[in-house]
Design a protein around this nucleic acid. Sequence first.
DNA 1: GCCACTTTCGCAACAGTGTTGCCAAAGTGC
DNA 2: GCACTTTGGCAACACTGTTGCGAAAGTGGC
Lengths: 399, 399
Amino acid sequence: MHPSASGANLPALRSHNAAVLLDLLRAATLAGGPGLGRPELAERAGLTPQAVSKITARLRAEGLVEEAGRLPSTGGKPGTGLRLAAGSRYAVGVHLDGETVTAVLTDLAGRTVAQRSAPLALDRPVADGLAAITAQVREIAALASGPVLGVGVGMRGPLDHRTGTLHRVTGFPHWEGVPLRDALAARLGLPVAVDKNTNAAALAVLAAPPPAPAVPTGPDGSPAAPVAPAVAVADGPRGPGAGRAADAVAAGESFAYLHLGAGLGAALVLDGVLHRGGRTGAGEFGHQVVQLDGPLCECGNRGCLEALCLAAAARGDTAGAARLLGVGAANLVALLDVDRIVLGGRTVLAAPEVFRRETAGVLAGRGRAVPVSTATPLAVAEGAALLVLAPLFTRAALA
Amino acid sequence: MHPSASGANLPALRSHNAAVLLDLLRAATLAGGPGLGRPELAERAGLTPQAVSKITARLRAEGLVEEAGRLPSTGGKPGTGLRLAAGSRYAVGVHLDGETVTAVLTDLAGRTVAQRSAPLALDRPVADGLAAITAQVREIAALASGPVLGVGVGMRGPLDHRTGTLHRVTGFPHWEGVPLRDALAARLGLPVAVDKNTNAAALAVLAAPPPAPAVPTGPDGSPAAPVAPAVAVADGPRGPGAGRAADAVAAGESFAYLHLGAGLGAALVLDGVLHRGGRTGAGEFGHQVVQLDGPLCECGNRGCLEALCLAAAARGDTAGAARLLGVGAANLVALLDVDRIVLGGRTVLAAPEVFRRETAGVLAGRGRAVPVSTATPLAVAEGAALLVLAPLFTRAALA
DNA sequence: GCCACTTTCGCAACAGTGTTGCCAAAGTGC
DNA sequence: GCACTTTGGCAACACTGTTGCGAAAGTGGC
């Protein structure tokens, strides 16, 4: 509303601090332990314990936070563990991929509670497609044991997340200009957010537990999390100084999510926030030129990474496609100094370990040995749900 | 200090709002008019007029802000123009470039008030070099008619701005590991900040008046600004919708500064903040691969942009070097969706218009027609001074 | 010339933030 | 059993921006 609108007042400060604490509590909730005590919350947030007491009292009154039990004593009165009241609110995430619609129901912590898929006939009239999406959302939302805050949708670009209107839906011109966000919101009576599949997947990666040093998936029977987490961490090459790892939780993390499916795109999380670019067009990764005299791409230029990569994949040279992806990733890591690379998309997930290994190899050969991991097939849907949950947590998606 | 330390309290809110207003007042001061009235400040900052009155009263008491006169009436009581008390504080910026040291003295608004250059014999002992730099700073600081807040230094990387220690000073191994920041601070008795030349120049571009729609440099005799501004704006290709231009002042601007001198580097300003990267290594622009089977670079890879670009420049093919720079710039614009490109560095400034035109041409050919401009030779020194002034304005450089 | 109107801007009272001082509760360890 | 440590809430506090209000100082119509 305001031209720059960067001034802050007391309500802004209040919601900011609440979001900071909810962030910390969400991470602790996903870790599955007895939660975080007020003193530790205060230490991590940079607030006084008394302030934390006040804020968490408000959050408990709103039902967003609950006491989880007693913490082990450290020589004095044992603390009270706090965690997110994960079952108090829910969100629905939808992934529109080709002719499939996948919907997930997540709890307040972003954990997937239920999922379902169905075909989506994009060649039929728009109203039919909207009805099919609406039905999927309604059915999965009915499984929630608490209020559903909204619906997020992730799909191929280009689209503008600020208006939620579709552009150039490849092969299906009658979807051009459909105001997907408003149409779904009207049918569902819920807030709807729409974003590119790459951005959604990046949000899922950002929200996932921090990349732990490759523990072999112990049977951690945490409640209400029957589905695998959004990111499968691989024991990639670790940089120098691997001693300190656990403390850098989520404060200013930077990574790139590279998505190789029908096309090649990227999403960038820099210093903990998703970078969408001035005209919401950031992440055009596929049409970077990596071979000046290379073959002509349909975009009109020569030597685009996407054309080379897809050509290699099409002729069955998976490792070659992965190495080309590695070249682009190395250029990106050099330019942005991101902490890690996450790969996703249908082509990658058909042979995740090949892509992970070959990409990491190229990075190491270029002196940019950052960890490489692969996302899970549900990352886009789960990240779409996070579009709805994000406003509760640290302010990142505004604009 | 704190692990994440993102919680905010009242002092933090206070200094944030003060910084926001100082930002707006700095821009108005550079524009040279009668300053900004309190109601307009309130509108732009998203605060109430009464809050602006309180905050500006504090800032006036500190001597940072002053009343500039009366504003034209709009039908009621005429407002009081406010602007930065530009002469109340000063900063010194130092540019170490090859064997030359250039120092500037800037006022609180970042305008250069004085400049001087001297040779710097890097082959002599470190103590001699430090003494030469110190002497330059002392002499130019003596010209200030108010307190000097500190000294900023910009020079070639790699270096870590958090410690201010040098690494790999090409050709002069005895400078390896010199704690430049602390050594200068001890000799000068002033705070010192050190950063890469690219980052410094990007700060100068960020702090310069917004890219106006190419007015032909009217003789605007604004006081105490005898030197040209840090950026020479060129009438590059403007995107669609060139009607609205003036309102997007500095709120979340994104651009890339590309520096072609002894090497090829970049600095990135994304959403108004300088992106330094997780290991302070962002901006490695020169060793991106743009020709998979290209000539071997000294970094060990093939087809690095820097090698190709410098080779073209070395054989006198300025336009060719510029077009190669354009290829890299187009890759960058596609990935990050920045609003504009700024070129600088010795090689560029030897033929700025050729570089600007050819680079812009390649961008337009790739469908990425963003404005391209060139920086002035003083940009690095002026940006170095801004390293000192930055903490007073919108919080960007922390970490 | 006078008056109604608009706009600026400070004073005073206010609501609400995190902070400080204090104290009861509840553990550990000698 | 007692000294010590740690937790965490209550109350008073300092300080933030906000609201209500009124004086000052212009413009414009009559």
